[in-house]
Write a protein that binds this DNA or RNA. Structure first.
Lengths: 214, 214
DNA sequence: CTAGGATGTGACTGATCAGTCATGTGACCG
DNA sequence: CGGTCACATGACTGATCAGTCACATCCTAG
């Protein structure tokens, strides 16, 4: 976490630092991002950065937490707008598309998160997850389990299989959105198309018993 | 390409160098992989490496080409074993699962390729593709176009959508296989389950016109 | 006005890296 | 034997980095 000195900083300066760091970490992998460049960009001395954060890792985790919180806010809002007891697929689409909306606020926040999941060393990723107190991407799998229970997903399909497909689809579009190859609108349309196919594949069919696994 | 001196090397030494380089580049991203470590591991002087290759990039491309050729061999073999005029989904499954078999020969070859697609800088990836004379991942999309023509895929689904789903699914499983989180057998089973769902989602349904996009 | 804690600073340390180059070695030819 | 040529070598260069630290500056409390 940032040290007390950071929260004491005048709003403008803090903003400048966050901005510079976000710029650097969303454009480079953790390893290639340079504190030296960040401090230069923010117009502060290198030593100052160490008044505010323990080290590079600490700064990175702070930013990632910021990004995560903003994204979660978008997702929650989108889901709540759905009203009570939403269908699995409706919820999914709302969540993913809601998350994409983060790109409209600040595409660097989205890019930061996407870079994180591409980060190569799994042990390092785990360390970050622990620091941030997060579980893995098991949420979708839980939703899928509920979906099966409610008869919205074919019981012959393992929840983990459904979750993997959905996760992979959302990552695929999310990466292109963050890379700027897709506009937010295009990304939304693209994911809608994907989820349409997946829904066809996952929903139970009348008159079938569902014996695709095991 | 490697210089002439490299091909003149005694088999054993060449093998040692390839081995050390493969180890390093499959365990680290391009940026973090160290030529110094490779030469140390291979038991040669640093200068010698520059007798064999132009630079780090040259060495990397050489390895990636090796990996690509081996993988393609596995894929071709699997597809040919299918006989003439295979169904889209049969071909797809054979290709992907065939590719996975590379892991049995040398999991580092698979890991190298997977690391490449995770590599962060798109401009850099493009540079490598150009050097190796490869086109993008458009092959699957072409297959999908053929699949639509032959009525194996719902005409309401864009080939690019189908291709994206399939690519994402194979990447998802491939990454875990390369990371050692899945055995080759598990990976094969996992992908079979995924493609099962996708097939249900993509195949035309009797009595439907197919109006999912546009 | 002054003492002292809090905060700002940038030159410095030690590490690592890709790539270079002067020098060394050994094999083969005349 | 001497000369030449292909290859081998590792100390060196210049760059970059995270992180440190002795010192400067500011602010507040007494």
């Amino acid at each position: 976490m940032p040290k007390g000195t950071f929260s004491n900083l005048p709003e403008v300066k803090r903003r400048r630092i966050i901005d510079a760091a976000l710029e650097e970490f969303s454009a480079n992998s953790y390893g290639r991002a340079s504190l030296t460049r960040i401090t230069r960009q923010a117009g502060i001395a290198k030593g100052s950065m160490y008044q505010y954060f323990d080290d590079k890792f600490d700064l990175y985790c702070y930013l990632l937490r910021l990004a995560g919180e903003r994204k979660l806010a978008f997702i929650s809002e989108a889901i709540e707008a759905l009203g009570p007891g939403p269908d699995f697929f409706a919820m999914l689409k709302a969540a993913v598309v809601g998350g994409f909306r983060l790109a409209r606020e600040d595409s660097r926040l989205l890019a930061l998160g996407n870079r994180f999941v591409l980060e190569m060393d799994p042990g390092w990723r785990e360390k970050v997850m622990v620091r941030l107190g997060l579980r893995g991407e098991s949420t979708i799998e839980e939703w899928a389990r509920d979906g099966v229970r409610r008869g919205e997903i074919d019981p012959g399909i393992k929840p983990s299989t459904a979750a993997r497909l959905i996760w992979a689809a959302s990552e695929s579009v999310g990466q292109e959105l963050a890379a700027g190859k897709l506009s937010p609108d295009q990304a939304e349309a693209e994911f809608t198309a994907l989820i349409g196919v997946l829904e066809r594949g996952l929903r139970p069919r009348a008159g079938e018993k569902g014996e695709m696994n095991r």
